[in-house]
Nucleic acid binder design. Structure first.
Length: 487
RNA sequence: GGCGCUAUCGUCUAACGGUUAGGACGGAGCCCUCUCAAGGCUUAAAUAAGGGUUCGAUUCCCUUUAGCGCUACCA
């Protein structure tokens, strides 16, 4: 039975790299009818926060990712300790009574430190006596030192891995307060939960040698390993909240108006490729296409800048996916973003607006800036000079708006009716249609760039259109101070 | 410092000894067009450097350079 796990430590919000690790685990599980396990690695009690835990669940929920089993490492301490002492019983671990080194001391000892002097060789009797006397100790793994022994494992992504045991230090299994370390707890749980494949970040690649040692000390065959290349910043550094801010948090993309699947799609394309030039894949296609063969061995850059925290490719994928949405669905999804922006949007109106903005917005949140004028009583102030069309003047703008006022009073308010009437108007005034439409567009939308005119007028309705045109005419007539002309 | 990993357009990537080194995003240009988009077409842009192996290297080996990771009683 194939079993994989995602094991975040709740010490920060859900990081996009973590989200990707979850997704790859999930894809692999779903691809092979395996079991997806969420295991909260909360052994570091000092750094755990509830907010972080909430963030992990919120993020996964938003991405609509599910799991089959859920565990908390902190509740499994007894099991971990039991396994640690089992290793001790086999003589593969020993008590180290050396006081914790200060940061400064570690700095000095850093180069090639393998173990603290004297502790490996302590006799069983003395070790026991000092422990009984209450002297604190950490339990360390006794890494074999004989000859040129190498620790080896096969990584599904990085291939054959080998490291001399002589280069591995005697790492801790149990802290002096009795709490298991990550290495121990992780392996103990992987074993107990019968994890078959460990899919995780490449930052654990060298840790894996220690884990292999632990598994073997426990008399178990290590699971299969597959390490994932990391997500990094454009300058090559690791993505960190302090340095890179919102780009590292999944919630940023949710709040920016991303479709969950667009973001999953984007994340999957970092460090993995279906190798057939496909860029846009549905969830089912991703599941079907996923395999370790397509995973890279080098890190992938998330392409953002100080000005724009969103990778352009992510943006493109999102815009593409938005265009495929049924309008009802799009309208439903945009509504909360419009309301959050303070617009008086309702489902009925949004449904009529949706087709007009669908191919113009890149994120759901863009509806607020793209379609605001549909949802306000009063247009935001704009420069009357905007009303003047290309190669025209204020007189032309005024003429157009006055003609439009008359036309729109009479016209049938449908796409075809409006188009016929307004094109006719341009003909009568002997001006280009662009010159005819632009002043009307600005008058009803309050800006020069907007959705197509006839549909816009239709949705706005006769009354609103006439009111706004009237207002624009007043602005042109009253605004003698401004002499801006358009060339 | 030691150990491990990595290196194709600006970015994401394809190639698994023989290609004019392909695609996508982004950029530039043209077309379409009532503005903005969308769409169509065109275009610039890469094998880190140096050695081998080979008839032939992006591809295999070595060195250099650069980046990343581990080197904690963090995970």
């Amino acid at each position: 039975m194939l079993r994989v796990r995602f094991a975040p430590s709740p010490t920060g919000y859900l990081h996009i790299g973590s989200a990707r690790t979850f997704i790859f685990n999930w894809l692999y599980a779903r691809r092979n009818r395996g079991t997806m396990i969420l295991r909260i690695d909360d052994t570091d009690v000092d750094r755990n926060t509830q907010a972080s835990l909430d963030s992990i669940f919120d993020g996964l929920k938003w991405l609509d990712l599910d799991w089959d089993e859920e565990y908390y490492q902190s509740q499994r301490g007894d099991l971990h300790r039991q396994m640690a002492w089992a290793i001790f019983e086999r003589g593969l671990a020993y008590r180290d009574f050396t006081p914790a080194a200060t940061a400064e001391e570690k700095e000095h000892a850093g180069a090639g430190w393998l173990c603290n002097p004297g502790m490996r060789e302590l006799s069983a009797e003395e070790s026991q006596r000092r422990a009984d006397a209450g002297e604190p100790f950490v339990l360390r793994f006794r890494v074999p030192r004989e000859g040129s022994l190498a620790v080896e494992f096969q990584d599904a992504v990085y291939g054959e891995q080998s490291k001399l045991a002589a280069d591995i230090e005697d790492f801790a299994l149990l802290r002096s307060n009795g709490v298991p370390t990550y290495h121990l707890a992780s392996c103990a749980d992987d074993l107990d939960l019968r994890i078959s494949h460990i899919i995780r970040g490449q930052d654990h690649l060298t840790n894996t040698f220690k884990h292999v040692l632990i598994f073997e000390a426990l008399g178990a065959k290590p699971p299969q390993f597959a390490h994932l290349p990391l997500l990094i910043a454009p300058d090559g550094s690791k993505l960190s909240k302090r340095k890179h801010g919102p780009v590292v948090s999944v919630t940023t993309y949710r709040d920016a108006g991303f479709l969950p699947h667009a973001y999953i799609n984007f994340l999957c394309l970092l460090g993995w490729s279906p190798k057939d030039n496909r860029e846009q894949l549905t969830r089912e296609e991703l599941i079907l296409a996923f395999s370790f063969d397509g995973i890279h061995r080098h890190n992938a850059v998330v392409n953002f800048t100080d000005e724009d925290p969103i990778d352009p490719k992510a943006m493109w994928l999102n815009a593409e996916l938005i265009r495929t949405l049924p309008v009802e669905e799009l309208a439903r999804q945009m509504l909360p973003f419009a309301c959050a922006a303070g617009l008086r949007a309702d489902p009925g109106k949004m449904l009529r607006v949706a087709p007009l903005v669908q191919e113009r917005i890149k994120t759901l949140r863009d509806v607020a800036s793209m379609a605001d004028f549909f949802f306000v009583d009063e247009l935001a102030p704009y420069d009357p000079a905007e009303l003047v069309p290309q190669k025209g003047d204020r007189a032309m703008a005024l003429g157009v708006l006055q003609a439009a006022r008359n036309i729109l009073q009479e016209a049938v308010f449908s796409h075809a009716g409006l188009e016929a009437a307004l094109r006719g108007g341009a003909e009568q005034l002997k001006i280009k249609v662009g010159q005819m439409f632009q002043p009307i567009r600005v008058a009803v939308c309050g800006r020069k760039n907007a959705p197509p005119l006839f549909e816009t007028l239709e949705v706005l309705g006769r009354e609103t259109c006439l009111k706004r045109i009237e207002k624009a005419i007043e602005m042109l007539q009253g605004d003698h101070a401004s002499t801006t002309e358009r060339g």
